[in-house]
Each structure stands twice: as structure tokens, then as C-alpha cells.
Nucleic acid binder design. Structure first.
Lengths: 115, 115
DNA sequence: ATATTATATAAGTCAAAGCTTATACTCTAT
DNA sequence: ATAGAGTATAAGCTTTGACTTATATAATAT
């Protein structure tokens, strides 16, 4: 079903810029259904920890991510209260679940107590 | 209504990159209902002709625009056969029609035989 | 208090993006 | 054939973006 929520062109652009990077788009697809900590993303994407942190920061600054601290971990999940949520979900809905990259990333998922 | 069309994450990213610029997003919103020639865009956006041409080229290379030559003009319109059309329309649907920037740009629209 | 693990931030590098100016191409009119 | 208008492309400049390495912060465990 289509959402009726609209926003300014500038707001739409801000959201698009946040997710127009392959890593960040994939991150948002992942957190659509789960929450992940930084170390999990590092394993899944095979990128350095600072690179992952920086991507997460951009998504958080765009209001798309919610941060949840538990112990020494910080878990990130989709911010369902985001002003961009309708647009975001529409975009994510266009990614096929069978996407090879997406499945490759998910295949590398490890529990939090990873080492 | 929601479209069921999905594509690879890479394809979605390519589309998002094309429209994640304020000028290009606005261009796509404009060509949703009309076709425009380069000189019209120049007037509407108050940008140089090469800058406009370069934005149009990006959108065309992403498959979002159709080019139509008539006389010495080149008219650009939305490519309804684009593989990204469903995603694109979803995105554009989130821009409010009352958007100030959009209305400001539309207010500067002039007929083709402009000088 | 110290060490360890998880994460963030700072600073630097390199490539890409968006503009500019200058020039080339294309069509029309003379 | 030449000139002029509309548009594209090339080259250069400047800013931004995505990484790197190094360091700082925060929580946990000893």
C-alpha cells in the first residue's frame, strides 16, 4: 500500500543522500528486521571498524537509525519514528530479497559475542 | 498503490545516486508531467548551461530520461520504460506538491522560444 | 587502578562530484 | 558557405565522500 506522507524536496534529498551508498543502503535493509552491533557489521561487510562507524553515524545523523547501548555494545536498528520512514520503506521495498549481495552479507552474520 | 517491481540492490543504488542531488531530483519531478528543453531548465534553475547539461546527462545515463530532438532543441522527459520507473515514481511521490523550491522553480518556467 | 574490548573521533589521502570557462558540435536561416 | 542559436563535451578547480591509520572514549573485568 502506498503511504501518503510527503515532505519537502530538501528532506527527500537528505534521505536519498544517506542511503545512496551501497553499504548504507544494505545496512538499512538489514536493520529493517534486526538490530546489529558495530562488530557484527564489521564482519558482515568486511570493512574496517572506523569505516563502519562512519557509515552508521551518517545514517544516524539522517535520523534513520536508532542507537541502543547494552553493555559495551551499541546496537543499531531502524528508527521507525523517522520522518523519512515512509520513503525509506518504499525504497527498501524495491530491493529484491534474493539479491546476491544482500544474501552474501547475511551469510556472514555472526552472534554478538564474536571474536 | 504499491508497485511490486524489485531489482538488485546495486540497481537501486544506481537510481538513488542519480536522484540524490537536489537539482536532479527536482528535474525528475518536473519531467513527471512535462517535457523541457535545456534552455528552459537553465532559466528555471538559474544555473549555467553546461551545469544543466551535465545533470541531464547523468539522469539520461541512469536511464531515467528520454531525449527528444525537435529543431535545434532537445527536449527531456521521463523515461516511462526505465527499469527504475517504479522506484522513481515512489520517490517522487514523497515530495510534497506545495514544496517551496519546487514552486519557485516552476514559477520561472518560460516558453521554449525564450531569450 | 589497570587492562581489555567495543566503539567513536581525528587527521590524512585519494577519488568522485559539481561547478566553471572554453570549445566543439548540430541544426536553422540567410 | 556562413552565421547564429541551442546544446554537448573537455579541461580545470574546489568541495565532498569514503576510506585509511592513529588515538580517544566508554564499559567491563581483573
Amino acid at each position: 500500500m502506498e503511504t501518503l506522507s510527503t515532505q519537502s524536496a530538501a528532506d527527500v534529498t537528505a534521505c536519498l543522500k544517506a542511503v545512496s551508498d551501497p553499504t548504507r543502503l544494505m545496512m538499512m535493509k538489514l536493520v529493517e528486521t534486526n538490530e546489529y552491533c558495530v562488530c557484527q557489521f564489521v564482519k558482515m561487510f568486511g570493512m574496517s571498524q572506523p569505516a563502519i562507524s562512519q557509515h552508521l553515524r551518517k545514517l544516524k545523523q539522517a535520523g534513520l537509525l536508532k542507537e541502543n547501548r547494552r553493555g559495551q555494545w551499541r546496537f543499531y536498528s531502524m528508527n521507525k519514528e523517522s520522518s523519512h520512514i515512509a520513503l525509506l520503506l518504499d525504497i527498501l521495498g524495491h530491493i529484491e530479497d534474493s539479491d546476491a549481495q544482500l544474501q552474501a552479507v547475511r551469510a556472514k552474520e555472526k552472534p554478538v559475542d564474536c571474536f
